[in-house]
Computed example of a mutant assay.
Amino acid sequence: MTELAFAQSFLSMLGGIPSKITHDHVEDPRRYTVTTPYTLPHHPTLPKKFTRRTCATKAPPESITVTAVSSRNPPLSITLPSPLPVSTTSVLDIKNAISLQTGVPVQKIKLLHQKKPAQDSKTLKDVLAGEGKEQLELGLMIIGGAASVPEQKPPKQEDEMEVDSKEAEPQQQQQQQQQQQPVAAPGQQSGREVLDTEEFWADLKGFLEQRVRDEGVAKEAVERFRLAWRS
């Protein structure tokens, strides 16, 4: 069969097939082979339903002992006095207590629980999260290291304290005297400068004339006061 004859037969076959199926097209059911539906067999033993087990959480105690430990520089181990109430004590309260004992500012103190930072707003009840512990150990981190911890001076002996108190007494007395002495404001004359002016003595003379009502006696008194002041 040549190519031309094959093309003609193929086109004639396509021409006999309708190009579009009508809306009322019905296929002859006799052309289909009868098939029965296949149903899957049931499994002899069904798997048991998986139930997730939840661990029972213990209620935290009402109070707990808190210890802050720092293994880095500087190594510290601080146990806060007396058990702290769990529901009302916050992480910020613990930082303030540590700051009072060590002298480190609160801003440079960082507390860790299970190697995670503890927020200042959380209480000990939130930090424990169902752990029924009676003692809580927190990680302590000092920002800046040992340089942030102030040096603690050794306590002075009684003899040194007495010497320091004796040396401090004259200084305190001198400071009190300086505070009691009136200080001239900027732009004003001091007391000695006022006594050297003629206006002061003229005012004093006028005051004495009003009191003694005798110009000669007032003038004589002013001259004597002035000579005594200059001498």
Rank of each mutant, 00 (worst) to 15 (best):
T2G: 13
E3G: 06
E3L: 08
A5E: 15
S12Q: 15
S19R: 09
K20Y: 04
T22R: 05
H23T: 11
V26C: 07
E27M: 08
D28A: 06
D28G: 05
P29I: 01
Y32Q: 09
Y38F: 14
Y38L: 15
T39N: 05
T39L: 10
T39F: 07
H42V: 13
K48V: 13
R53H: 12
T54S: 07
C55A: 08
C55D: 04
T57V: 13
P60Y: 01
P61R: 01
E62C: 01
I64N: 03
I64P: 05
V66N: 03
T67V: 13
A68S: 12
V69C: 03
S70G: 15
S71V: 11
R72I: 01
N73A: 07
L76R: 04
T79Q: 12
L80M: 07
S87F: 00
T88P: 03
T89P: 06
S90K: 11
I98D: 08
L100Q: 06
G103M: 03
G103W: 00
V104H: 02
P105C: 02
P105D: 07
Q107Y: 03
K110D: 09
K110A: 11
L112N: 10
H113A: 11
K116D: 11
P117R: 06
T123L: 04
K125V: 08
D126F: 00
V127R: 00
A129M: 02
G132D: 09
G132H: 00
K133H: 02
K133N: 07
E134Y: 02
E134N: 08
L136Q: 06
M141P: 00
M141W: 03
I142E: 11
I142H: 03
I143D: 11
I143G: 04
A146V: 05
P154G: 03
P154K: 09
K156D: 10
K156S: 09
E158T: 06
D159Y: 03
S165Q: 10
S165H: 04
A168G: 07
E169V: 06
Q173F: 06
Q174N: 05
Q176V: 09
Q177H: 06
Q178A: 11
Q179D: 11
G187F: 03
G187Y: 01
Q188P: 00
Q188W: 00
G191I: 05
G191S: 08
T197Y: 02
E198L: 13
E198S: 14
E199M: 06
F200T: 13
A202Q: 14
G206R: 12
F207R: 12
D214A: 08
D214G: 04
V217L: 14
A218E: 10
A218Q: 05
K219D: 15
E220I: 04
A221N: 08
A221P: 02
A221Q: 13
V222L: 05
E223K: 08
E223T: 13
R226Q: 14
R226N: 14
L227E: 15
L227F: 01
L227T: 13
W229K: 09
R230K: 12
